[in-house]
Design a protein around this nucleic acid. Structure first.
Lengths: 210, 210
DNA sequence: AAATAGGTGTTGCATTTGCAACAATTTTAA
DNA sequence: TTAAAATTGTTGCAAATGCAACACCTATTT
């Protein structure tokens, strides 16, 4: 529990205490069930304790778009997001989830839990991290050609992995979505990059040759 | 002062008290001077009190990109951003700026200023707002064609202005950058939308006809 | 084991886009 | 007020991209 973002650095004992204070609920969900619907209109914060889930946006056309993949330790609902579209969280595996009201974070409780400050600090860190991740994506998306987008994306992966060889965390269909381009066009450009000797690929393994 | 994001809702008296406690400095800068350089490697938070400035990224090629336009009340440095490129803040007008160390926000002072909680809450709100703004941009950028990007952008403006008629806050050169497209191609698509009767434009005034 | 679904890889073709270059207009500075 | 700079508006053309369609392969489900 205390490796998890929001409670990072707080000892087990105190985490339990705070969760009680926050009136947090732990609930288990079966695969493919809805953990929470209409997330944008709630003040709920959720933490995935085990299993995986997806944060989904139901487009105005009824299209379902995966906004975020949530895994153990992921937090959702930390941003009372201004989406007018419906957001929901769906279990992609059996999973276990803690939820509590966002109010408990900002309004400090009467008991004044000794580690409340740390929770808030962690919360700021998490949001800042989120901004940073989104900045990366915007950097990639603003590149004009698929080639430039790919190279920017690779450069970020290279930095994160501190290596010119790394494994993609997204499959190619997802990568195309992430880059905002057509999948077949992505594959084509990937092939070009290979033919011109910029990269080597083997399934989801990428090696940069420059 | 107490309309400004981070001190919103706190009375003048207490704001002054906190600024002292935060060891905040107020400095004036002439137009085109550097307010802070290498922002990414500091823990400084700045607030623009008067005038305008730009948050600039110095690209690896030496290109200067405007990341954010800062105006009265704007905050910079709130995210210890993970940019490896150099960030700096440049005055685009004479301006006056308050700066203090980020530490003061998270580590509460010994005097335990009575409104420290509100500052933190405001800080969370600001970051959340930032995430929401970035989400909007990502939504626009992931659209595949210039037309779709424009329509998504217009739709966001329409919501924000609660009106089908509004004035663009960006000029067309900036809008092209924002959308990540070529400016001339943007103008062309704008003309198409006009010819097909979707919109009317008059300089930076847009009227949606659908 | 067979059937189904999901992801990968490829291609032709029409469309969209970026690029370059320039004129016209507006804004800003001298 | 004039000159200079910035922004808007246009166009031809080559290049990049999306789209559709299909084959192939690999998981997952029945």
């Amino acid at each position: 529990m205390n490796e998890i973002g929001i409670f990072k650095g707080i000892d087990e004992q105190n985490v339990k205490y705070m969760l009680k204070c926050f009136q947090a609920k732990t609930i288990s969900y079966k695969k493919d069930t809805t953990i929470i619907s209409n997330l944008a209109n709630t003040n709920i914060i959720g933490i995935i304790i085990s299993g995986n889930a997806n944060l989904i946006r139901n487009d105005y056309n009824g299209n379902r778009i995966v906004l975020e993949k949530l895994e153990k330790g992921s937090i959702f609902g930390e941003v009372f997001s201004s989406y007018s579209d419906e957001l929901s969280v769906i279990a992609t595996e059996d999973c276990s989830v803690i939820t509590f009201d966002y109010e408990h974070i900002i309004k400090r409780c009467k008991k004044s839990c000794p580690h409340h400050n740390e929770v808030i600090n962690n919360m700021l860190q998490i949001l800042a991290k989120k901004v940073s991740v989104m900045n990366n994506r915007i950097d990639v998306l603003t590149k004009k050609t698929i080639r430039e987008k790919l190279l920017e994306y690779f450069s970020i992966q290279e930095k994160e992995n501190i290596s010119k060889t790394f494994y993609l965390k997204l499959n190619y269909t997802e990568l195309a979505d992430y880059l905002g381009v057509d999948r077949s066009a992505l594959m084509r450009e990937l092939k070009n990059l290979k033919n011109e000797g910029f990269i080597e690929t083997k399934l989801n393994k990428i090696k940069l040759l420059y």
